[in-house]
Design a protein around this nucleic acid. Sequence first.
DNA 1: TGCTTTGCTCATGATCTTATGATCTTTGCT
DNA 2: AGCAAAGATCATAAGATCATGAGCAAAGCA
Lengths: 137, 137
Amino acid sequence: MLSRTARYGLKAAVHIAEQGDPSPARVEDLAQALDVPRNYLSKILHRMAQAGLLNSTRGRGGGFWLPRDPGTVTLIEVIQCLEPTHAFDVQCLLGRPDCSDADPCTAHGRWCAVRDEISRFFTETTLAELARPESGG
Amino acid sequence: MLSRTARYGLKAAVHIAEQGDPSPARVEDLAQALDVPRNYLSKILHRMAQAGLLNSTRGRGGGFWLPRDPGTVTLIEVIQCLEPTHAFDVQCLLGRPDCSDADPCTAHGRWCAVRDEISRFFTETTLAELARPESGG
DNA sequence: TGCTTTGCTCATGATCTTATGATCTTTGCT
DNA sequence: AGCAAAGATCATAAGATCATGAGCAAAGCA
């Protein structure tokens, strides 16, 4: 459903959100906690930082943090900055360019309904909702 | 959403179903009609034949045909034989092994609902429903 | 100023999917 | 038997994604 890259990016963002720690999270620590290759994660985080989803500083005491409330960051934002194309903007299942609302195959309407539901999930769900519920909360 | 391989396989099956021709369809003709590499398609069709979704004969007059009524062949059958893993059996979006019905993240229930709807679409939709409506029907 | 910590970047390789071309095997026809 | 038509198979490679390792660049601290 999601590329590994997008999943790593989401996991990292969720992890940072779960910590609730205002001080920056180091790539090294995130990589270990999530069991993700360090430099690979570094590139992913950097892309997210360029998209404004994360902030970063270099040098001693540096790292990444969330500049926004996790409850306002939708999954689609993360995915869009990490995946060139998403599964859920597929028009026709068979890739038929001429399959449209105006000239559909029989399954077109039904497929669009499913696709829209997927799309809605990713645009409405936020990082906060992917975090574990507070234990003992 | 679907790998190119699965899409090609589906397109071919739908094309054969649309023809309604009882004589075998040649790989060469299918490849041209669908604009798909010939040998690549050949391998895909062969896999589908091994799974029992298609029948084939070699030699003069040979080719592929549907042994079953297109209305009884579900998309999941085609996809399962062409894709090792499907998008819609992903348990947790983040790939967390410990995220389950018993110990979910906050979005778990909502995601499962979406996933199940995708799954339902592929298990309930048949080849016949992907065919174009008969023109002038 | 210079050392250490940290993110950033580049070069490279592994692996999977997608694809191509050549050849082998089976079948039907004459 | 021999030829042609058709699927089956094999070797190979392009391209994307996934990943590693080495080193560069910036920031803080003494």
